[in-house]
Amino acid sequence: MTMRKWLTDYRYLTLAQYYNQLGWLPFMVVISALLPVGMLFGLRLIGGGIGGAGVPFVITGSAVVSIVTMAVTSVATDLFFERRLGAFVYYASLPIARSAFILAIVTIRLVNTLPGVVVTLVAGKFLYDADLAFSPWLVVVILLSILSLIGLGAAIGLGVSNEQVLHMLANLSIIFVMFGAPVMIPADLLPGALQVAGYFLPPTYAANAFRGAVFGASVTTYWVDLLVLAGFGVLSFIIVTTALRWRAE
């Protein structure tokens, strides 16, 4: 396949993803912001004592929850139903590159996720009167965080064959990120097993990088997190592209 054909495939597969989501895009954006902003609001009401070191965890943790909502839950659900509806058989019958198909899915989810993240950070700034610094590296952090988590969403959407299990895993991923990973809760407050598990999960590194980029730390303090996120992103892209089976269900 020539580069020109690959680029044409990527362009029109992205357009297909965009068209297929157009009607409910605003709804998705609201949903992706609703949960994290609601959390910020609720924690402010019931957790009046949160302050100092806790605020960065709450604000950036909520942004990561927004990403997980879109990148894991939405991607898993979309791919599951595309598979079930027969979309993969249609795409598989076309002379297209699988990598272009996956990258088109990633691209649209990147676009879908951004508004929710931005709304969450801005809401956090005002609700907690936080002094956010918004480093230019924040863009890279958001992109890499989404990329690294889309792999998890795709793995659930492509690997699960039962709708109940799909919803259970998607919800579990949000609950785990909220309460079981060092995202909203500092790592040293978590049980040892969860601290160890956190090293193997992208949300841990996404939350670290977010805290650095939003609260004015130098990129030298979180470049390792960016590197690990990039690694997760590339790895998940390769695994999903390889594992995606163009086949009938």
Binding site: N20, G86, A87
Partner: peptide, 11 residues
């Protein structure tokens, strides 16, 4: 294919 082609909002 025997099934639908999976498009949703696309016209």
């Amino acid at each position: 294919p025997q099934k639908q082609i999976g498009h949703r909002e696309m016209k």
